[in-house]
Amino acid sequence: MKSYDAIILGAGPAGLTAGIYLSRAKQKVLILDSGTGGGQVMLTHAVANYPGMPETFGYKLASGMKEQAVSFGCEILTNQEISAMDLKSTDKTITAGGETYKAASVIVAVGGKPRTLGLESEKRFQGTGISYCATCDGDFFTGEDIVVIGGGNSALEEAVSLTQYAKSVTIVHQFDHFQGYAHAIKAADENPKISFIMESVVEEFLGDEALTGVKIRSKKTGEVTTLKVTGVFIFIGYVPSTEPFADILELNNRKEIITDEDMATNIPGVFAAGDVRAKKFRQITTAVSDGTIAALGAMDYMHGPDPDKL
């Protein structure tokens, strides 16, 4: 069994920041990530509001954080699925990729993933009509009629952005009002290419080889209509990746991990940071802040309070 001072689950901004702080403090640190690392920032085209950085690509910011963590001695293993874990014991163990790792402290920074509608037909048309990235795939729908699903800032802003390509954009939203900021709602409302179908949900995506239409049901009247479209962009938020921790860590009703202000969970020595944690604002900067605090909390837990040790 390989032994570490701390194991960090997740190599997004929160996990990598925690790794930077801990490894710089001469702790032996392992970061395990279920994907290729980088977190949600990898799925962000451009980042313009990270202090001290001119506008940069999301992947570049993530790569920089990863390189920095490795430079301080962090070991990072990607594409690691956790098959077993014991977080309650003093020596905590994580099994992934056929190896078991032991550590005194664990930081859970596994983030979240884009929410999907969960329809079988949704999977079938991914890449052939259904997309989750307007900047990536918008130009495939030049001059065509498309649908955007969602009612938050992402849906509204991406709908406006997609009008530079599409002939028309129909926003389908399940509620009678939008959750986005007033300026985002105004921009969508004032765009002549955008129309709205409110209080409605998508029941099925239609087509053979590629998407040709969407079946929509009104929540108000129950009426089902079919929209002929070739593209659908889905922006309905994120879900925290907390399934493996559901019976171990205390979660709120949105399945987010509950922590105190020091990022400590209900289990001594286990901390949570970033988008996986119950909090109001989810930004790269808040993830970095969480990761810093979790690392300092883990140091306190392992060695006792000492403000000079980092």
Binding site: M42, Y132, C133
Partner: peptide, 16 residues
């Protein structure tokens, strides 16, 4: 692809 959000993770998998 491009250096976009859906492409970069695939390049990373290939590199690995």
């Amino acid at each position: 692809g491009r250096m976009g959000p859906m492409c970069v993770p695939v390049y990373a998998v290939m590199e690995e």
